Amino acid sequence: MSDPLADFRVLLANDPALNEFSRTYLPALQKEVQDKYGVSVSAQDLVALPSVRINVLNQNGSSMDVRGDVKSIPAVQKGIAENELMRSIGDPSAKGHDEMAAKLAAMRPDARIAYARANKIADVPAKNLPEITDEERAALLAQLEVVQSPSERLKIARKLGLS
């Protein structure tokens, strides 16, 4: 079976300007896909798209023509679907919320936590707590000793950034 991209590869090999352009254009396009969809695609996947080959042959660095075609790559389609599902977790009215909620509800608690961590569902931004000195820390810890309930003490310590 012949390579459907053989002619394109011959053109790249015989034209240094096209070759140089493709060496800068394809990695930039790969980075754009990674940033936008969260998936990495190979240069081979991109070159298989007619719009990418046309942009390389015309030495046109525009990604506007390519955006629609990039969505036809299976890895990008999977990334788009996963991103939509992840967004649907926090929004009950979002498409796919019920499926994702059912999937998570069916998991064991430890598997649910591992899944959330792996998919960055439970990423909580770090609180910007002010820096405290050792003396201030000691004073806060002394105040915590007054609290009787261990769970309440831990709750307050976390709020103060001591845990």
Results as ranks from 00 to 15, higher is better:
residue 146 V to A: 08
residue 146 V to D: 07
residue 5 L to T: 04
residue 62 S to L: 06
residue 20 E to H: 13
residue 11 L to E: 13
residue 42 S to H: 04
residue 21 F to T: 01
residue 62 S to G: 09
residue 16 P to M: 10
residue 103 K to P: 04
residue 90 G to K: 10
residue 72 S to F: 05
residue 141 L to R: 11
residue 67 R to Q: 14
residue 161 G to R: 02
residue 129 L to C: 04
residue 28 A to R: 14
residue 23 R to E: 14
residue 53 R to I: 00
residue 117 R to P: 05
residue 134 D to F: 05
residue 19 N to H: 13
residue 50 P to S: 11
residue 163 S to V: 07
residue 81 A to Q: 14
residue 29 L to V: 00
residue 133 T to Y: 03
residue 16 P to V: 11
residue 154 L to Q: 07
residue 155 K to P: 02
residue 2 S to Q: 07
residue 76 V to N: 00
residue 105 A to N: 09
residue 138 A to D: 14
residue 19 N to M: 09
residue 122 A to F: 09
residue 134 D to T: 07
residue 99 E to R: 13
residue 50 P to N: 11
residue 115 Y to E: 12
residue 97 H to W: 01
residue 101 A to E: 06
residue 132 I to M: 03
residue 37 Y to F: 15
residue 114 A to W: 08
residue 150 P to S: 00
residue 139 A to N: 10
residue 125 P to G: 10
residue 161 G to I: 01
residue 127 K to F: 09
residue 11 L to T: 07
residue 148 Q to A: 15
residue 47 V to Q: 11
residue 8 F to S: 00
residue 148 Q to F: 04
residue 108 R to D: 15
residue 26 L to H: 01
residue 56 V to L: 05
residue 117 R to F: 14
residue 65 D to T: 13
residue 133 T to F: 02
residue 23 R to W: 05
residue 157 A to P: 00
residue 15 D to T: 14
residue 36 K to V: 11
residue 4 P to W: 10
residue 54 I to C: 04
residue 100 M to S: 05
residue 64 M to D: 12
residue 19 N to K: 12
residue 79 G to I: 03
residue 101 A to T: 15
residue 137 R to I: 03
residue 134 D to R: 06
residue 8 F to Y: 08
residue 3 D to W: 08
residue 64 M to Y: 10
residue 71 K to L: 15
residue 83 N to D: 15
residue 45 D to K: 12
residue 127 K to N: 08
residue 114 A to P: 05
residue 33 V to P: 01
residue 142 A to C: 04
residue 136 E to H: 10
residue 90 G to L: 08
residue 142 A to L: 08
residue 155 K to W: 04
residue 112 R to N: 12
